[in-house]
Design a protein around this nucleic acid. Structure first.
Lengths: 152, 152
DNA sequence: AACAATTATATTTTGTACAATTGAATTTTA
DNA sequence: TAAAATTCAATTGTACAAAATATAATTGTT
């Protein structure tokens, strides 16, 4: 038996996994000077866009759970980039907001996507196409679960 | 300033990162019964296809380096799925080959891709398209570096 | 043959991920 | 309104992965 379906070149998961790691690796030299890991970078992207978010909202937007976010956010707080405080309306909720230092970092971070843009050997059209397909996977998964927290 | 280029929806990296984690997560319940993690699974895929490979070859095929592979292969060896032995010609090289137990596992693993196939809400055509775009990213990266080991 | 450079793997450290609990706050229901 | 159920975040524990660095074997050069 040669199990055609087990061949690496017939997998969709593998190029997804590999490409993701390749891209993350490409970000590293750009993010190191900012003192951010890639995951911390996307957390900051989400926060810069919305000013402040609860841990739960962050998790929903980024598909990360509290077990990953809590220690990560504490590190960002330790670096002075974000402030963490309980909501007055609902004390179960922890609000994360960008500090002045965090906003200063945004200006430095602004050049990261520009530097990355030239790195990928695919056209803008292909990029949009790829993005669309990936979003389709993500959204279909979001629907399937109803709420992302129900995933596990 | 609103830094359009920093918005999450304008990133290509993020859906790649998120979709990759979502897929890996979907594999977990299928791989748990086999006693494999996702990374171990793709290592076994590569080995099943080639029978035996050096650590270096594995890394090249899967874009993984020895820091990831060495402990992973030791675990697979501990489970009795692979055998590790130094090459006689060049003792720097470590040859990894599938054991009888490893070949038995292949038969169980054969149903994994079939079970996954129905899970993704994208058509076969879209899958191929996606695969092609991802391979393009990977290959352009391979060329850029000359050899993958030069990446760092 | 001696030395430097290269190659291949291993080790260490840090970061990320998931699962299972806990505890507190809130909402629902009886 | 009291009790039960739900929600949210934190915590704990374990496992995995990635990068940097170290070590050992080989090759090339003079």
């Amino acid at each position: 038996m040669d199990f055609e379906q087990l061949k690496l070149e017939n997998q969709l998961c593998f190029p997804l996994y590999a490409a993701s790691r390749i891209i993350t690796r490409k970000y590293k030299p750009l993010l190191d000077p900012l003192g951010l890991t890639y995951t911390q970078y996307i957390v900051m992207l989400a926060l810069w866009e919305r000013d402040s978010l609860s841990v739960n909202q962050l998790g929903e937007i980024l598909w990360l759970d509290s077990g990953t976010l809590t220690p990560l956010l504490k590190k960002l707080e330790g670096q002075g980039l974000v402030r963490r405080s309980r909501s007055v309306q609902d004390e179960r909720m922890l609000i994360v907001e960008v500090t002045d230092l965090g906003w200063q970092l945004q200006e430095k971070a602004a050049e990261v996507p520009l530097k990355m843009a030239g790195c990928l050997n695919i056209s803008a059209d292909e990029g949009r196409l790829l993005q669309g397909l990936l979003h389709k996977i993500m959204e279909s998964e979001r629907e399937r679960a109803g709420s992302w927290t129900k995933l596990r």
